[in-house]
Computed example of a mutant assay.
Amino acid sequence: MTPAAASNDTPGRTPDTGLRADAERNRDRILAAARHLFATEGLGVSMASVAREAGVGKATLSRRFATREELVNAVFADRMDAYASAVTDALADPDPWHGFAGYIHAVCAMQAADRGFADVLTMTFPAAKALEARRAEAFHGMLDLVARAKGTGYLREDFTSQDVVILLMANAGVVNATGDAAPDTWRRLVAHMLRSYATPDAPIPPLPDAPAPTALYRAMVRITRPGPA
Score class of each variant (00 low, 15 high):
197 Y>M: 13
215 A>P: 03
192 H>Q: 13
185 T>R: 05
194 L>V: 13
196 S>M: 13
200 P>Y: 02
212 A>E: 15
185 T>S: 11
185 T>D: 11
192 H>D: 13
206 P>D: 12
199 T>K: 03
197 Y>Q: 03
199 T>V: 04
212 A>Q: 14
215 A>E: 15
188 R>W: 10
185 T>I: 02
187 R>G: 04
186 W>Q: 09
199 T>C: 04
215 A>F: 05
193 M>E: 14
185 T>K: 02
185 T>M: 08
199 T>E: 13
197 Y>R: 03
195 R>V: 05
216 L>I: 14
185 T>Y: 04
213 P>V: 08
214 T>S: 14
186 W>A: 12
208 P>M: 07
196 S>F: 13
187 R>K: 15
211 P>E: 13
203 P>F: 02
204 I>P: 01
184 D>K: 11
187 R>C: 07
199 T>W: 06
187 R>I: 02
206 P>E: 10
215 A>M: 07
206 P>K: 02
186 W>D: 14
202 A>D: 04
207 L>G: 04
200 P>S: 00
211 P>Y: 05
208 P>E: 05
194 L>N: 06
214 T>M: 01
213 P>L: 10
202 A>F: 03
204 I>C: 11
214 T>G: 02
193 M>I: 15
194 L>M: 13
196 S>W: 11
184 D>P: 00
188 R>D: 10
193 M>W: 09
189 L>R: 08
211 P>N: 07
216 L>W: 12
199 T>A: 07
198 A>V: 11
198 A>K: 07
201 D>V: 00
213 P>W: 08
195 R>P: 06
208 P>A: 05
197 Y>S: 06
197 Y>G: 01
198 A>R: 08
216 L>N: 09
205 P>Q: 05
216 L>P: 10
215 A>Y: 08
199 T>F: 07
204 I>E: 09
200 P>H: 01
205 P>H: 04
189 L>P: 10
206 P>C: 00
200 P>G: 01
198 A>P: 09
187 R>Q: 15
192 H>T: 14
188 R>E: 12
206 P>W: 01
204 I>K: 02
214 T>N: 10
212 A>M: 08
210 A>R: 12
192 H>Y: 11
194 L>E: 12
207 L>I: 11
208 P>T: 11
185 T>W: 03
190 V>W: 12
202 A>P: 02
203 P>I: 00
216 L>K: 06
197 Y>N: 03
204 I>M: 13
196 S>G: 15
